[in-house]
Amino acid sequence: MNQFLFGGMPYVLLMTAIIGAIWRFRSNKYTWSSQSSQFLENKTLFFGSFPWHYGIITILLGHIFGIFFPSAILAWNGVPVRLYILELTALSAGFLAFFGLLALIYRRLTNTRVKALTTSWDVLVLIVLLIQVVTGLGNAILYRWGSNWYAGAAVPWIWSIFKLSPNVDYVSNLPLITKTHIFNAMIFIGLIPFSRLAHFVVINPYKYLIRPYQVVRWYRKGGPTPNIVQYK
């Protein structure tokens, strides 16, 4: 069972994500959107979107950083005060995301305009995210110093997946909450190309910081460069 969940499913869901993303990007790029509903309702959204995104992005960057630099995290955590600062920051961000997510779910359930736009995919996404955040908070509180044992136990598992020789032992004996968190994360990745989560794969905005304000496209053969720098 563990072998299937943590040895096989990661590949299935990763491939789903990659192939699905390519398929959707190529076949119908038009639908690749964040599907913002701020235009219809922007009061509850203020209390949902801001905390949710700022919280979850902090957490997510932490997780990604941990995958690539586990020893840096362990070194930082060497002094208890630093460990506590890291953990408490992460926990606060987690609560922030949880609060935002609850506000977003509340908004989606109560506002008639937003409800009219809600698809079953959106509901699925919200359920997956709620499970993810709740189990994440559970991990942080009930099995604390997760940043440490994440770097020690979970990251080697992730790398074993990338190296195509999954070592399930790393995660198979972790508590149920943790295992739910891990498995749900993979479902989350698998969902990305099929739902509004597509906007999570942000390809464009980083360019905004380096491009000039104005964009000019030429469609003449041998015309000037695609983007003419008018001014920064």
Binding site: N77, V79, W145, G152
Partner: peptide
């Protein structure tokens, strides 16, 4: 506590 890392890179005991 992890102030000194294990020579083979294991995580410090305080993690768990």
């Amino acid at each position: 506590m992890g102030a000194k890392r294990f020579s083979n890179g294991g995580p410090p005991c305080i993690s768990c």
